[in-house]
């Protein structure tokens, strides 16, 4: 899905937990996430901390979209 959308020229950032699959599939901007059943959350945290975690991941995704890339890039920081 990432590829078909990016083929149009729209940049896509893939947020997922199993990064090797994303690399195999051909995503170009990848942000690793927390866990398979809750990529953008962590039920062990309280509501506020969990939202904060989610916000940081989304901010990282937006930064990935602002970053020019030539090849597959994992934004793990």
């Amino acid at each position: 899905m990432v590829k078909e959308i990016e083929r149009t020229g729209i940049p896509v950032v893939h947020m997922c937990t199993v990064v090797p699959i994303s690399l195999t599939v051909g995503a170009n901007r990848i942000v690793p996430t927390v866990a398979i059943p809750h990529p953008l959350g962590n039920p062990a945290l309280n509501k506020a901390d969990e939202k904060d975690l989610r916000r940081k991941l989304v901010e990282r995704a937006l930064r990935a979209l602002e970053t020019p890339v030539e090849e597959q890039t994992v934004f793990d920081k």
Binding site: I5, I10, V13, H14, M15, C16, A27, P39
Partner: peptide
């Protein structure tokens, strides 16, 4: 007119 996409996977 979407400029960018965030695609999430589980």
């Amino acid at each position: 007119g979407v400029d960018a996409v965030i695609l999430t996977s589980t």
